[in-house]
């Protein structure tokens, strides 16, 4: 799995590509934690358009980061949840806490608004 990180103002944008499972979960968590430790980002946006697979190991990492960001007063959003990931995303109730938008621009606007 590939991880790309960038900042858009106070939003950390995490783009995941490939397959997120137990094997890539630790690296995903460590990369995001390292950025959150810098205290630049208030909110986090996950771009999941090229994430073609995710299982509950990936969900666990996303939910763990949600707890951290949420307890610091930040919010999370996602964009382009891939059809292969969508069923799990919905089943776990993620849309309620990490709403999904159809573009990065819309998701950023929602986080900043």
């Amino acid at each position: 799995m590939e991880i790309e990180l960038k900042y858009r103002g106070n939003v950390l944008v995490v783009t995941l590509k490939g397959e997120l499972d137990q094997h890539s979960a630790d690296r995903f968590r460590d990369n995001v934690e390292k950025e959150l430790d810098k205290e630049i980002a208030m909110h986090v946006l996950f771009n999941l358009s090229d994430l073609t697979f995710m299982d509950s190991s990936g969900l666990g990492v996303i939910l763990g980061r949600y707890r951290r960001v949420n307890s610091a007063g930040g919010r999370m959003a996602a964009c382009f949840v891939h059809p292969s990931v969508e069923r799990l995303y919905n089943m776990a109730g993620l849309p309620r806490i990490i709403p999904s938008y159809d573009s990065e621009v819309h998701a950023l606007a929602a986080l900043k608004g």
Binding site: D55, S56, S57, L59, G60, L63
Partner: peptide
């Protein structure tokens, strides 16, 4: 370790 505890639930649903 941030296991979300959904493994069997996913198997049963899918």
């Amino acid at each position: 370790e941030e296991r979300c505890g959904l493994g069997f639930t996913v198997m049963e649903s899918f």
